[in-house]
Nucleic acid binder design. Structure first.
Length: 599
RNA sequence: GGGGGCGUAGUUCAGCUGGUUAGAACGCCUGCCUGUCACGCAGGAGGUCGACGGUUCGAGUCCGUUCGUCCCCGCCA
């Protein structure tokens, strides 16, 4: 009776066999009605469940007549007596299926007209209509449950973090635009003509400053805003991170804290999910370069093996031009061994070739290992020694197919990575859909080469500590310098990114210098960070798991919109309220803005 | 910014090489039905085939443009 209110004595999920005989009041939505003549059954739904209401013409004709006029999704209040159902009429699918409520009174609060779509999980409907009528869409069981799961995950995260000694601290939403990173959402300032706030892309700098303020362990379920294109796993505009930062820690300490978090909350929010661990009970670790070499991505799905092999060496002096032209230039040849290809038709290989081309490959060569040796369109171009080398190096068995990619290292890795996951999809290589295969990707490079601008850029986070410190920054090729920068990946989805921060002003100036920022630039843009570090910064680091993506994994949803109550569409519009919208001229005036739309 | 899929009844879809009056299921409306639970049965209403333009004797169908939506690449430190 905890949820009894003015309108109800019980919720629609409460009543069981033990309540038979009680006079009750229920309130809810008409999920479905079945008028069988003289008897009307109504499935009455609220947040908590569904209870069957029965209207009997013989018992109360007046109420029965009113019930005949009901429409689905109408809000009604009923009074009645809980009665038991006879054997045979019990609905085992329903939690309240042993009873029903015989209505003695009915009040129709509102009779709804025809709905834009049917409120059941079974019937689909276009995304546009769902988003426009999101309040209706959210009544559907699956989506409703996802939103409740989200609430539960947040509460479990908070419980765990606080028990682990973290403090949840709010950071500003109206902050300042910072160079690097994504496009900002800007908010014009009324009091400062021509100046703008920026919504935070993440509370990155604030959380580091909190470390400088002596807060030992910080977390926040923080909104982040980035004006970038959407994807199935990336919400446009805004998303949430479980933002975490710790003082006096190294990489291992952060890993330990995160593994503890996920091991603790997963069974509580998604009991079906099983986390795969190493023998030592940890998440496996893969170096960034190994991830690219073996899986072709920096967010590998390690629920299946299917590793990419490097066979460049075999073809150093090849007569096959496609391979030789690449190996001579210092590029690479990669191979992917796929078992059980003896049953695959030519069309399978053509399909994979077409797919590789879509991914930007020039083609996808292949061989089949048959009883009489390695066969395939490229076999005749390869020397006998090369074929033998392939067999031994790749450990080929009869029936194996081998796909080859050749070209520049990174491009080839990425194409082979795409081929790898395509094959996994076609072959249904993920055996247990409830497995959570977390892994740490470690040793990200601090810098990367920017082709367009012909300069060195920070590859991930400009505040990451370079491995080897100042010494390596001064002496090594910048592109060879690794950072204490890591990603947490789960089932091929990048869940979080983090790092041990660069808290030393000298090292920071040097790192920024390599990326093309003068001391003045750094002082101007990141003066607050430098000042904070000068006045004593603890070694610190953290991570920020994406809440929305975590929920996608827990709820088995392929689209991020399914775990957000009011998501935006791909073009960053929220179709229910029609945001973004126009504003009054007066508002623009106050903000000192003039609109000029480029055609 | 680029590539691709989709757009036909309230909803989900079918509609062949262009050819009478554009179909189905669900939903909706009317009627019948006292144990349904996606009730059943009978009947009925409901369409600018996303929009515009072109080809054609004739366009839902072919071509072009455009709009919407989803997916992907770029982008997302």
């Amino acid at each position: 009776m905890a949820f009894a209110t003015e309108y109800r004595t019980h919720t629609c999920g409460d009543l069981k066999a033990k309540d038979v005989g009680k006079t009750v009041k229920l309130a809810g939505w008409v999920q479905n009605m079945r008028d069988i003549g003289g008897l009307i059954f109504v499935a009455l739904r609220d947040h908590y469940g569904v209870t069957q209401i029965i209207f009997d013409a013989a018992l109360n004709n007046e109420v029965f007549k009113l019930a005949e006029s009901l429409k689905p999704e109408s809000v009604i209040f009923i009074e009645g007596e809980v009665i038991s159902r006879i054997q045979g009429n019990i609905n085992k699918e329903m939690k309240t299926g042993e009873i029903e409520v015989q209505a003695t009174n009915l009040e129709i609060d509102y009779l709804v007209p025809e709905l834009p779509f049917t409120i059941t999980d079974e019937v689909s409907c276009s995304e546009e209509i769902r988003l426009k009528y999101r309040f209706l869409d959210l009544r559907r069981e699956k989506l409703h449950k996802n939103i409740i799961l989200r609430s539960k995950v947040m509460s479990e995260v908070r419980r765990h973090m606080i028990a682990a000694g973290f403090n949840e601290i709010h950071t500003p939403i109206l902050t300042v635009s910072s160079p690097e990173g994504a496009r900002d959402y800007l908010v014009p300032s009324r009091l400062h003509p021509g100046k703008f706030y920026a919504l935070p892309q993440a509370p990155q700098q604030y959380k580091q400053l909190l470390m400088c303020s002596g807060f030992d362990k910080y977390f926040q379920i923080a909104p982040c805003f980035r004006d970038e294109a959407a994807r199935a796993g990336r919400s446009p505009g805004e998303f949430y991170q479980i933002d975490i930062e710790m003082a006096y820690v190294g990489q291992e300490d952060v890993f330990k804290a995160m593994e503890a978090l996920f091991k603790d909350i997963t069974p509580k929010v998604a009991s079906k999910k099983k986390i795969s661990l190493t023998k030592d009970g940890c998440f496996p670790r893969i170096e960034y370069w190994d991830a690219l070499n073996e899986y072709g991505v920096d967010k590998p799905d390690i629920r299946y093996e299917l590793k990419i092999k490097d066979v460049t060496e075999i073809f150093m002096d090849s007569e096959f031009k496609v391979f030789a032209s690449n190996t001579k230039k210092g590029h690479c040849v990669k191979a992917l061994v796929v078992e059980g290809c003896e049953h695959e038709a030519r069309s399978f290989f053509d399909k994979m070739d077409a797919y590789a081309k879509e991914q930007g490959a020039k083609g996808l060569a292949y061989l089949n290992y048959k009883e009489d040796g390695l066969k395939g369109p490229i076999a005749k171009f390869l020397k006998e020694t090369e074929l033998e080398d392939l067999k031994t190096r790749l450990g080929l068995k009869i029936g194996d197919g081998v796909f080859f990619g050749a070209g520049k290292w990174l491009e080839t890795c990425k194409i082979m990575g795409a081929v790898r996951s395509k094959i996994a999809e076609l072959r249904d290589l993920v055996k247990d859909k409830d497995e959570l295969a977390f892994c740490w990707i470690v040793d990200f490079p601090l810098f990367e080469w920017n082709e367009e601008e012909g300069k060195v850029d920070f590859s991930h986070n400009p505040f990451s500590m370079p491995q080897g410190g100042l010494e390596e920054l001064k002496t090594k090729d910048p592109l060879d310098i690794k950072a204490y920068q890591y990603d947490l990946v789960c089932n091929g989805l990048e869940l979080s990114s983090g790092g041990i921060r660069n808290h030393n002003p000298k090292i920071m100036y040097k790192a920024f210098e390599i990326a093309g920022y003068s001391k003045n630039d750094v002082d101007e843009k990141f003066g607050h960070m430098i000042r904070a570090f000068k006045f004593g910064a603890p070694p610190h680091g953290g991570i920020a798991p994406g809440l929305d993506r975590l929920l996608m994994i827990y709820a088995d949803e392929p689209s991020i919109r399914e775990v957000i109550a009011f998501p935006m569409n791909q073009r960053a519009q929220e179709l229910m309220t029609n945001s973004p919208g126009d504003v009054a001229v007066q508002q623009l005036k106050e903000l000192h803005l003039k609109i000029e739309v480029n055609k």
